[in-house]
């Protein structure tokens, strides 16, 4: 058993878990944040993607103890003041989901993609970088459109602020 502390969505949290407990299970079961999903058992689907210290990671392939001391953002931490994050709003506007199971991972992946590429993001890059996220409903088309729209809007917003 390990007692670990980390920052999740801006709040410091502590909990007891086995050394072998995966970060995704710590997030879901110890913290009750069930927006982060487990869609496979093989590190392939990306439904569990969260942000750890500023980078997207698969929380099903990291032990909770490895993440001790880090700062985590989950899908629950994206919206602010009751407003959807621009990526969440774009997924809604562009129908970027059907059943919604993969959506938390898709949205967290999109946020990371836009962080790295900004408004320079193009369709080929989006499709290549979705390699680690599997959706079994949509055929990806609307997911790609949503990410491009969010990138354009967030890039535009950044220019306006400069």
């Amino acid at each position: 058993m390990a007692k670990i502390t980390m920052t999740v969505n801006g709040r410091q949290v502590s909990g007891l878990c086995d050394d072998r407990t995966l970060l995704v299970h710590f997030i879901r079961e110890n913290l009750g944040l069930t927006g982060t999903h487990v869609g496979c058992d093989t590190t392939q689907c990306g439904a569990c993607v969260v942000d750890m210290d500023g980078q997207s990671v698969k929380s099903c392939s990291i032990l909770a103890v490895q993440a001790a001391g880090s700062s985590i953002t989950t899908i629950e931490g994206l919206s602010a003041n009751g407003e959807l994050h621009p990526v969440q709003a774009a997924f809604k506007a562009h129908h970027g989901l059907q059943c919604g199971f993969c959506t938390p991972g898709m949205v967290m992946t999109a946020v990371d993609m836009i962080r790295r590429h900004g408004s320079n993001l193009d369709e080929a890059t989006v499709r290549a970088e979705l390699e680690g996220n599997i959706c079994r409903c949509t055929g990806y088309h609307n997911i790609v459109q949503a990410i491009l729209a969010a990138a354009a809007e967030m890039g535009g917003a950044r220019h306006a602020a400069e």
């Binding site: 698969k58 392939s61 990291i62 970088e129 390699e131 680690g132």
Partner: peptide, 9 residues
């Protein structure tokens, strides 16, 4: 190598 999330770790 892998995907973006794998490359981060």
């Amino acid at each position: 190598i892998g995907d973006p999330h794998v490359r981060h770790m």
